[in-house]
């Protein structure tokens, strides 16, 4: 499997990663190498094998419906690069 520059640019867009054009080229080569190596999985016979979600052999725990958290907006906001009047602030979103 080889990926080209356009594919890398498309995935980079999905992952919100700004890439320099010359890096994109190099990255396409590296990704192709890695994906080529990963390709060997196709030779494994997985007919009827259930895909693994977790190795944890337990049931999903459920918690009781109680208010036990929240109420500390200053903690929530104190690491924010930009905040105002108790809100996080980002560049204007144009819908």
């Amino acid at each position: 499997m080889s990926v080209d520059k356009d594919t890398v640019a498309h995935i980079a867009k999905l992952a919100r990663l700004r890439m320099d054009p010359e890096k994109t080229e190099a990255m396409a080569g590296e990704l192709s190498q890695i994906l080529g190596w990963i390709e060997q999985l196709q030779e494994v016979d997985t007919e009827g094998v259930a895909p693994m979600t977790s190795v944890a052999q337990m049931k999903l725990p459920l918690r009781e419906d109680e208010v036990t958290d929240g109420g500390y907006p200053e903690d929530v906001l104190r690491n924010a690069p930009e905040s105002l009047q108790g809100f996080y602030v980002v560049p204007k979103v144009v819908e």
Partner: peptide, 15 residues
Amino acid sequence: SGASTAFGSAPNSQV
């Protein structure tokens, strides 16, 4: 999460 679902509180106070 254990934060409250009440409507109309101060911003980011039920987080």
